[in-house]
């Protein structure tokens, strides 16, 4: 493959004082692929996300994102909100962050802030309800409706987001991220707290996004049925370092991965050394 990958993480290091949360991590993620980052608790998975989406500034390393148009962005140099706005990186959160007092539909409209803000001429045109703004608002509603259908929330569109059951909130957060029309969707434990049926539905949703939108998905997940079932490429972290990488079946058989997950008693460790 000669085309630049969607996301190239090169020698990413994140230090908090003396603590190395991520050490010299390199991996790639491609369009139309689901890349999963797994690892035991505290392995640094969410830290990788926070670096990618601008909530942390990496201590060193390069994060380059290439759109399908060929446009290239260096994420470590962009401000937090610009990563979402110009580089088109969308994310969800481990502990769901919806606008809870706003309705489901409003959540999806807020996600299209950048486009609508331009169409409203930074509010001036919107105040006078110019036709161009009305047109943009209609398009925004169409996009929102599209994603409401995808995540099965059309019937609940006018309810407050906080009134939704947990599984619906998870799906709404994904729909909201997709309404920003991203190039890469970063999901932080989307299956956490879902029952097996909801988890299976989520798999279908993610596969559909991959197939229909042609974007890349980056996934942090503990639920192995999700990871092994749908991901194309798996990166395994332990103590901030990459210990294995490859297709799901390959990673599952890797000795270092099994050791990281199941642990190893001290005698065995000495033997190994």
């Amino acid at each position: 493959m000669t085309a630049a990958p969607l996301l190239a993480v090169d020698h990413l290091t994140m230090r908090f004082g003396g603590l190395v949360a991520i050490g010299d991590l390199s991996f790639q993620a491609r369009h139309k692929e689901i890349t999963a980052i797994i690892g035991p608790n505290g392995a640094g998975k969410t830290t990788v996300f926070n670096c990618l989406t601008g909530f942390y500034r990496p201590s060193s390393g390069m994060l380059s994102l290439t759109h399908r148009t060929g446009e290239r962005f260096l994420l470590e140099r962009l401000d937090g909100h610009l990563i979402a706005r110009t580089a088109k990186v969308a994310r969800t959160f481990q502990n769901i962050r919806l606008f809870s007092n706003m309705t489901v539909l409003e959540n999806l409209i807020v996600a299209q802030h950048t486009a609508l803000m331009k169409a409203s001429l930074f509010t001036l045109g919107g105040l006078f309800n110019l036709p161009s703004y009305r047109h943009a608002e209609r398009r925004a509603l169409d996009l929102a409706r599209h994603w409401l259908d995808k995540v099965n929330l059309t019937a609940k569109a006018d309810e407050a987001a906080s009134a939704l059951p947990y599984g619906d909130q998870r799906r709404l957060e994904i729909a909201r991220a997709m309404c920003t029309q991203p190039e890469i969707l970063c999901l932080d434990e989307p299956a956490a707290g879902l029952n097996p049926k909801e988890s299976a539905d989520l798999n279908q949703l993610l596969l559909a996004i991959k197939a229909e939108e042609g974007i890349g998905i980056l996934l942090i997940e503990h639920d192995m049925s999700v990871v092994m079932g749908i991901s194309d490429h798996v990166v395994v972290l332990d103590y901030g370092r990459k210990i294995a990488e490859g297709p799901p079946a390959f990673v599952r058989a890797d000795a270092a991965v099994i050791r990281a997950y199941l642990g190893q008693d001290d005698d065995a460790k000495e033997d190994a050394c």
């Binding site: 962050r97 919806l98 606008f99 809870s100 007092n101 706003m102 802030h113 803000m117 920003t180």
Partner: peptide, 18 residues
Amino acid sequence: RAWEALREDEIACKALGI
């Protein structure tokens, strides 16, 4: 709407490019 969204969750706003 961005004002109200900011009242609800500033971090989510940032993640949406606001």
